[in-house]
């Protein structure tokens, strides 16, 4: 099974219409990947759908990079008892 980070990259690529191979953990969603505000909301929704979790909007939108998103999601999955 793909790692959380790989799945985060896959979702990010799909939403932002980028090549997954070009996305690095240190990339900032907005500054490096060009995510606009509506796309940030869409990313949160798609992460929730991908992992079957519920995220609190303020906390989720405060996450800025791909790598920190993967860590944040791993934490949420643990909290909500979702196996990844």
């Amino acid at each position: 099974m793909a790692s959380v980070q790989d799945r985060v990259i896959e979702v990010t690529a799909r939403v932002l219409q980028l090549d997954a191979g070009d996305i690095k953990p240190e990339n900032n969603f907005s500054a490096d990947l060009g995510a606009e505000s509506v796309q940030s909301i869409e990313l949160v929704a798609m992460f929730e759908e991908e992992f079957g979790i519920e995220m609190e909007e303020d906390a989720a939108l405060a996450v800025t990079t791909v790598g920190s998103a993967a860590e944040f999601i791993e934490g949420i999955c643990k909290e909500q008892g979702v196996e990844v």
């Binding site: 505000s37 509506v38 909301i41 869409e42 949160v44 929704a45 609190e56 909007e57 303020d58 939108l61």
Partner: peptide, 15 residues
Amino acid sequence: AWFLEGVVTKGFGKR
């Protein structure tokens, strides 16, 4: 609701 892109989302939340 934050109704964006034709669907209901959590948007930027209630704050």
